[in-house]
Write a protein that binds this DNA or RNA. Structure first.
Lengths: 367, 367
DNA sequence: GACTTTATGTCAGGAAATTGACAGGTCAAA
DNA sequence: TTTGACCTGTCAATTTCCTGACATAAAGTC
């Protein structure tokens, strides 16, 4: 089966195909390795995988291995006992424990330390973990899904990634091609995101004029899905009519496709026949329903994270500054919690200087 | 019927009762007026009302009349034609048009200008609107729900609110008593919010120790539901075990109830028997399901707005500064769009000085 | 004990954000 | 034509924020 799967996934070029495969793979509990450029929506895909698996009502625990300082990552994954290291003030469970019964998503696994790789391997083989400074081992039932935008085979060659771990992870490889190679998906995704944003902003659903569709399909989307999502949000704010016109698109995009004649109405690549959940039946954005492949994506809506809107700000009777300050405070708190109170590490998590963190805390009389 | 409703609503003291009434009122399309202190969850209630009405798949359009500068409010509600006033660069539809078929929620209606009140009255009576500087009138089918924390009768007395509008709005009055008068709801809500936050953070569901329950019920909650929500989020971050202990609570709360003996385990007010959707059956936070009264609330989950978490930040590979900057930029854009490009008004919307807005735009090379 | 690593707080200089004051443009009504 | 009500941008003074440098403490290693 794994061979067959490999073949199909390898050839698939549209999101629909990927999701079809997803449905087959989802219930199997196999380890999955997702590859693809930055911004191709790997997390989106994995969330959909989890949502359509039998584990869907258990935790989905994503962790970005590249974003967490490596000295923190181990205790983050496996937890630690009180006093395991300096300032390990209290015992806290690791992500594997939290994910027990569900799915853990190891994003950017290519960035992971060689020493930690061994421990991941152990979880894969023995299904058990040990906390940092821990006394005993604990059985866990976790499905592991990993993702990377590096070429892992090359990393193995270069000795930066353990070969045995690579083969353990790579049971089911899923490749997410960059958006520019998935012409048929572009309109599907554009419509999906635009609909989402319109709903969030309580706006009428927007449509695309034919030449906008052509432009969207010819633009190379260097930022992949992330960029597309961004553009769609922008349109949901800035576009005035009920149909997005060529002039509404950002200059950057129009520049990039300016060789495309305005009269070129016919989309070069026919749009994949949209699944019902996405096609525009009603005048407004209906709540996502059904469990079709594309709906699986809708089900994980917000996977791209819903950025705050002005309305949220008004709801709390805040001005811009207070609002941003509040968000900042919440993030400070969370970072401190994650690092068990170690300011040094909390600062690193937030990507700010330690002294800056201290200043921010002082300003707020925190701790 | 309206009389009977009034009576029951007037007497109800728990959320369950209010939601029961909601179910009766929701399908009727009557105009509803919600009263209650700031932070009692008026918007939450109204969203639930909309969600359980026949209009649930049409737009729900909230607008905070108090937060929007009054010269903007009219064009915001009714839209405007191109050139209707200085810098009305383009024609844009008003919220009433956007809400067509659905529900519009006029929050803080007590703050509304007398002149605008007349126009609202007209919508109520004639079901038609006219854009600012508009050429013709347009029929709309919108359910109007209003809310205020002022004493509208007193406002009418004082001539600050039109009596005719008051009676038109006040067909079905719903009063949301402050949290401190709804002892039985406190645990229900606490559990609900805590569950929500745990799910968002991929954490195991947390429980309360008996004396924590007692404390929560005795604390006067001056900030009402908003404050409670805030505390629950804090706990979902800071609490380490699987059960919230007395020591986990903020000092402020412990101070306020310090006269309560530690041994007073028995909750003074018995918790309302929790509906299934909220009671903790599984170990983890299951997705909300069902359409019971309390589930109506769960259905509008996120009504309190999901604040960003560290995970979102990592997902975008951003540091704290970039993240906040991005949010800021999105809000700037939206404010500018809402004010049709008038920086003066956009600044007011954001609660910042006009010059500050200009600087921020300049920094980003926007427009 | 010497050395390394990792944590901590303080502080001052420079960078950046915010704001009030100024100067001016446009439009419509008087 | 003048007046008032808007809007606009610029600029310099003030305030706030960020960071690098310094001084120190606790723990582990050789």
């Amino acid at each position: 089966m794994s061979l067959k799967t490999e073949g199909i996934i390898g050839q698939s070029t549209t999101l629909r195909d990927v999701f079809k495969m997803l449905e087959k793979v989802a219930p199997t509990d196999s380890t999955v390795l997702v590859t693809g450029e930055s911004g191709t929506g790997k997390e989106l895909l994995v969330r959909a995988l989890h949502a359509s698996s039998d584990r869907h009502d258990k935790p989905f625990v994503p962790i970005n291995c590249g974003a967490i300082p490596k000295d923190l990552l181990e205790s983050e994954l496996f937890g630690h006992e009180k006093g395991a290291f300096t300032h390990a003030l209290r015992t806290r469970p690791g992500r594997f424990e939290i994910a027990d019964g569900g799915t853990i998503f190891l994003d950017e696994i290519g960035e992971m330390d060689l020493t930690l790789q061994v421990k991941i391997l152990r979880v894969l083989q023995e299904k058990e973990i040990e906390r940092v400074g821990g006394t005993g081992i604990k059985k866990v039932d976790v499905r592991i899904v990993a993702a990377t935008n590096r070429d892992l085979e090359a990393e193995v060659e270069g000795g930066r990634f353990r070969e045995d771990l690579y083969y353990r992870l790579n049971v089911i490889p899923l490749h997410l091609p960059p958006l520019r190679e998935r012409g048929g998906d572009i309109l599907l995704l554009s419509d999906y995101f635009l609909t989402q944003f319109c709903r969030k902003k309580n706006r009428k659903k927007l449509g695309f004029s034919p030449d906008v569709e052509a432009v969207l399909q010819h633009y190379p989307w260097p930022g992949n899905v992330r960029e597309l999502e961004n553009i769609m949000e922008r349109l949901s704010i800035l576009c005035d009519g009920e149909v997005v016109q060529r002039a509404d698109l950002p200059k950057k995009i129009l520049e990039a496709v300016k060789d495309l004649p305005l009269s070129d109405f016919a989309p070069a690549i026919p749009a994949a026949p949209a699944a019902p959940a996405v096609s525009s039946v009603g005048d407004f954005c209906p709540p996502a329903e059904g469990i079709t492949p594309v709906a699986a994506m809708a089900a994980v809506s917000g996977a791209g994270f819903a950025w705050p809107v002005l309305n949220d700000l008004q709801k709390y009777n805040m001005n811009l500054k207070d609002f941003l300050d509040t968000i900042e405070e919440k993030l400070l708190l969370e970072a401190l919690s994650l690092s068990a109170g170690v300011k040094n590490q909390a600062a690193e998590l937030l990507g700010i200087k330690r002294t800056t963190l201290i200043e921010k805390l002082k300003k707020r009389n925190m701790e």
